[in-house]
């Protein structure tokens, strides 16, 4: 479970440059609230460091090249995108 500050910081960094990423990340945050494990939190933070197109390429499955050890969160984001 994330602390309030960690969740706020995460929530802000889910504000992106274009709507597609905003919508997917909003769906994820709505579904999960602060219920992220430490590993998931770390993986999501790593992915949020990417620029918007790189992040979208990964979420949309356009590329399978993503930062090491973020695989579970990538799958979570892909599921969030497609199961709506």
């Amino acid at each position: 479970m994330l602390s309030d500050v960690d969740l706020s910081r995460l929530r802000w960094r889910c504000r992106r440059g274009f709507l597609e990423n905003d919508l997917v990340l909003e769906r994820l945050l709505s579904a999960r609230g602060n219920q992220f494990t430490d590993d998931e939190h770390t993986q999501l933070k790593t992915l949020l460091e990417l620029d918007d197109n790189a992040l979208w390429d990964i979420i949309a499955g356009r590329t399978n090249e993503f930062p090491a050890d973020t695989s579970p969160m990538v799958q979570t984001l892909r599921d969030t995108l497609t199961k709506h």
């Binding site: 504000r15 992106r16 440059g17 274009f18 709507l19 620029d51 918007d52 197109n53």
Partner: peptide
């Protein structure tokens, strides 16, 4: 900037 510069809306 509220967000990292390369995440500004121009990116869209």
């Amino acid at each position: 900037s509220k967000v990292f510069p390369t995440r500004s809306h121009t990116v869209a």
